[in-house]
Design a protein around this nucleic acid. Structure first.
Lengths: 336, 336
DNA sequence: CTGAAAGCGCTTACAG
DNA sequence: CTGAAAGCGCTTACAG
């Protein structure tokens, strides 16, 4: 039997109210009773029941985080920032792995609703109408992380993917590359696929380069699809000197296929990735890539979410700065 | 204002008790009232309040998971198995990143206590006396994952590290290597440092090989320490043909330093890692390593924990099978 | 088949 | 400074 506030009150010979005041640092007791009660609390190892408190305050100090792929280095870093910042603010975080396509999102939303979380972070996936409706019905503050919605006005924190891709391509161009391939995500993917593709195309255009459709191929951001994408690119080997790859994992896949064909990066061609996951720095040679401040983004999301929880009102979104991390996979080319 | 059971009762013109019976599938109402009430529930979008339920049942259907390093691929895989299996069993999981040395463990234990989680999984860190005491005081079932305790009788699920290390070394020996270096974790680390070291030493002994202290160096399992360890090994370059590295991250560090010195794996020396993290398969060449069934281990931990939650009694521990994943970093040597 | 009442463990006016 | 009572949103005997 866990000891309750009643047990403490009995033992200390005071009322429940008094014990409550003391554990909540509210005025209304003498120093003497305070000491007496605190002694009993120590002795009995009393911890107030969070459920009872939550029931009264309508606050659980718990937030729910929905992630499509908990196992990826990308999600881990976001989660790391979220969890750390949540803990600093005395919030616990419930993780929900919604699956690759976010299939379990609705399920999780419903349990988060019953558990009365104070807020929800939806990461890396589009805000579908059904999600939005459920969240509205639940009447819980939400923030989108590494995602956004044109349709619904929900605050978000993310990087500008189009701009980041634009910079990645520009970086290649500044290093003398004019024939540039791309391994892109699907154009159906409004979050990470399309915008990176568009940024790439725009950079080429702005620098007076033409687009060569032969050397734009599509994967799903995963290692394996990087491999197959590279195989599609191989026949056009002499049409490019560099590749912009929309994820580090795909970049690693591409490089490993190249290496199997005795093609060396960056000597035979340059590569710039996207994400700056752990692998990027461990790769041989270390991968030049576009970094998103993932931990930082997680922290900002929490800060904003808590603000929403405390003052009901809407909050501005944040576009976080990306950065190109120069490592060893892009070679400066002297124009021929 | 969220709608409560009272609102539903009022609207449907029945008592609270009846509504309660209906949402809990308990006998005691006519088909007619059931339909009426369910209609109202839909209309009002009523979801029972989990806090109130938890207060009564003394069950929250929530478990707490303590991880020392949420961001590592190792922890992510464990967490993935845990979360998936928890969700299947209708449990939510609160993640707690205790920090590299588990410094925040006590803090988290206390909040998990207040939140009345039904069970706790402590992963990858030793069960210190203070943790054990707190957990006992909280009176919540615990299971150790990728960890164990000699001192306290707490169920655990892990791999036999000593045996796995023994196999890794034996694998090298079977491939003709007789001069084998090791990059180990600290011998002060009873969980992953000492046992892997011991398994390595025992394998050498059992195969009649002598131990060369020059080529046993110590890191902290991280990429950087793999780099510095390799630098310590370099002066003794001709005293080994293979290295057993106690983590994949360190193996990657070692290989990258080697590559900077124009040493190629496996042509110049072989490497076998430990963990089978994502990087292992993305590496060039892909890393031969010892795999732990991490997702599976997470699932087993949940299964056992839930069993403990339901029938108070103690549970047997599980030693999971490890496996050597043969990839491309170990070369068969023909004895000279 | 249905409802009134007590209770889960707390907090918060209210009264003294 | 202190306590009795009502209430947070439910469930569960108990009575009818």
């Amino acid at each position: 039997m866990k000891t309750t506030i009643k047990d403490v009150a009995l033992q200390a010979n005071v009322s429940i109210s008094t014990v409550s005041r003391i554990i909540n640092n509210q005025p209304g007791y003498s120093e003497a009773t305070k000491e007496k009660v605190e002694k009993v609390i120590k002795e009995m190892g009393f911890h107030p029941n969070g459920l009872a408190r939550g029931l009264i305050h309508k606050k659980t100090h718990t937030i729910g985080v929905l992630l499509p792929n908990i196992i990826s280095s990308f999600s881990s870093k976001l989660l790391n920032g979220i969890e750390e910042s949540a803990h600093e603010n005395h919030f616990s975080t419930i993780v929900c792995n919604t699956g690759p396509l976010g299939n379990r999102t609705l399920e999780y939303l419903s349990v988060l609703g019953e558990k009365k979380v104070d807020g929800i972070i939806l990461t890396s996936s589009p805000l579908k109408e059904e999600y939005y409706k459920e969240i509205k019905a639940l009447d819980i503050p939400v923030i989108l992380l590494s995602s956004m919605s044109y349709r619904y006005s929900v605050p978000y924190v993310k990087v500008d993917d189009k701009q980041a891709a634009y910079h990645a391509a520009s970086y290649l161009i500044q290093n003398g590359h004019t024939k540039i391939a791309m391994i892109s995500g699907s154009q159906d993917d409004e979050l990470a696929g399309l915008p990176r593709y568009e940024g790439f195309i725009k950079a080429l255009g702005d620098h007076g380069l033409s687009v060569n459709e032969n050397i734009i191929v599509y994967g799903d951001f995963g290692f394996q699809s990087g491999r197959t994408s590279m195989e599609q690119l191989l026949p056009f080997r002499d049409e490019f000197t560099a590749i912009f790859v929309a994820s580090d994992d795909m970049a690693m896949g591409a490089i490993s296929v190249a290496s199997e064909h005795n093609l060396k990066v960056p000597d035979d061609f340059s590569v710039i990735g996207y994400d700056n996951t752990n692998i990027a720095e461990m790769a041989i040679p270390p991968l030049t890539t576009v970094a998103q401040p993932l931990r930082e983004m997680g922290k900002v999301a929490i800060t904003k979410l808590i603000e929403m929880i405390n003052n009901q009102d809407t909050i501005a979104s944040a576009i976080m700065a990306h950065e190109i991390i120069e490592r060893k996979t892009v070679k400066k080319i002297i124009s021929t």
